[in-house]
């Protein structure tokens, strides 16, 4: 905070007559409370954790976000850090160019499962194989949210989408791609973990993993990836309040959370 050149307007404290004073719920690097997304969406929860981690690791003036195309692109509108919005699927390649030119920067990608698991699987795998010192973040809700609920490479078996009306069928559509496990199998990947933001414990877990991922990057150990399971009640066609439960019931059996690889901490 002390090295800011200007102090932008931060979150107003919420004051309610006769009630106790509640601190702002805004992350320090947030410039707006408006996330532009649907009620019940898990992405803004993940954004806030990400911004808190960047602030707490003192990376605010080193961070460069390389953001793909999807609902999560809206982070660019509400966070005060350098952003490069890039083509769908290509963020790990773009971030490679950024990081090689600005090696002191904390470079991260923000992508969805359509972006990373479907369109850009080659880019993330090759960036991991090259041991690029970047942090890739995949917000995995198992569906194309931005385009209105179609099947991605990460949709789970049985999941009903607009392009798998009777549910994803192994016979018709094959099986989901477990990005975290694929990346973890590559020697160039130094840190890989999967978390979820549907519970308070999951939020705390996500924060620990993201911190560890950025520490892996700044230590120069290699590529880091955190796959964050997020709610998409709109794209799942369930009531808003049912999102967190749907995530644990439908997605987590396919995508178990926990650290998969941590090269900084010998097993």
């Amino acid at each position: 905070m002390s090295n800011r050149s200007t102090e932008p307007d931060r979150g107003q404290e919420v004051r309610i007559e006769g009630a106790r004073q509640v601190a702002s719920s805004r992350a320090d690097l947030q410039v707006s409370e408006d996330h532009h997304l649907c009620p019940g969406c898990g992405h803004p929860v993940a954004w806030r954790i990400l911004l808190e981690v960047i602030q707490e690791l003192s990376l605010a003036q080193r961070a460069i976000g390389v953001v793909g195309h999807g609902c999560y692109t809206n982070i660019v509108r509400m966070a005060d850090i350098d952003f490069l919005q890039c083509l769908h699927g290509r963020a790990p390649a773009v971030a490679t160019g950024v990081k090689r030119v600005q090696p002191q920067a904390a470079v991260f990608t923000l992508q969805g499962d359509g972006d990373m698991a479907s369109e850009g699987l080659a880019e993330v795998l090759h960036a991991a194989a090259r041991a690029e010192k970047i942090t890739a973040i995949m917000l995995n809700n198992g569906v194309f949210g931005d385009t209105g609920g179609q099947m991605t490479a990460a949709s789970v078996v049985g999941q009903r989408t607009k392009t798998s009306l009777e549910g994803r069928s192994p016979e018709l559509h094959g099986y989901p791609v477990p990005v975290a496990e694929l990346v973890a199998s590559l020697p160039g990947a130094a840190y890989v973990a999967r978390s979820a933001v549907n519970t308070a414990g999951g939020v705390a877990q996500t924060k620990r993993y993201l911190k560890r991922a950025f520490e892996t990057q700044t230590s120069g150990a290699g590529f880091s990836l955190v796959e964050v399971l997020t709610m998409c009640p709109t794209g799942w066609f369930v009531p808003t309040a049912a999102g967190p439960g749907y995530l644990s019931d439908s997605m987590q059996p396919t995508y178990p959370t926990g650290p998969l690889k941590d090269s900084l901490r010998p097993a």
Partner: peptide, 13 residues
């Protein structure tokens, strides 16, 4: 983009 403008209110896009 070099990352240095983050948190200043003048981050680049």
């Amino acid at each position: 983009l070099d990352g240095t403008a983050g948190g200043t209110g003048h981050a680049r896009q």
